[in-house]
């Protein structure tokens, strides 16, 4: 089964991707969700880069007498994607910080409870939620 063992790079990617996916859907903490999302993103990066890999090739910087290079196109795409990912993660973190200031918590369950309380007209909206311990 040497054919199947040549596919292990995809399986590593699938494992990492599913680990990130699990963190996103199973964890309640918003910052942890963001880390899960970054894990998912990183697995996509590994997927692209492993596609660009060529057996016996070198990094795509020209050298005398070498004709076998790794595919430069995935490298370009992922290079920009990594920098974009840090910028978008920062937007997520900024949102989490603002949510913490507005709700006093970044746990999904707490936020939902507070929202439901605020929607209920009989109950006065709680403007000072309990402070989370430092």
């Amino acid at each position: 089964m040497s054919n199947v063992s040549d596919l292990f790079n995809y399986w590593v990617v699938v494992f990492l991707m599913m680990a990130g996916f699990y963190v996103v859907i199973a964890q309640g903490n918003l910052i942890k969700k963001l880390i899960g999302l970054s894990l998912f993103q990183a697995s996509v990066f590994i997927f692209y880069i492993s596609l660009g890999f060529v057996e016996g090739g070198i990094a795509p910087i020209l050298e005398e007498g070498v004709s076998n290079y790794a595919n430069p196109l995935p490298h370009v795409l992922i290079l920009t994607a990594i920098v974009v990912s840090v910028a978008t993660t920062a937007v997520g973190l900024a949102l989490a910080v603002r949510i913490h200031e507005a709700y006093g918590s970044i746990e999904e369950d707490d936020i939902q409870t507070l929202d439901l309380e605020a929607d209920d007209p009989d109950e006065a909206p709680s403007d000072k939620p309990e402070d989370s311990p430092r």
Binding site: I49, G52, F53, V54, A59, P60, A70, I78, L79
Partner: peptide, 10 residues
């Protein structure tokens, strides 16, 4: 890992 996969820039 990227370095090992010949993606120096990445």
């Amino acid at each position: 890992l990227f370095m090992d996969l010949d993606a120096a820039d990445v």
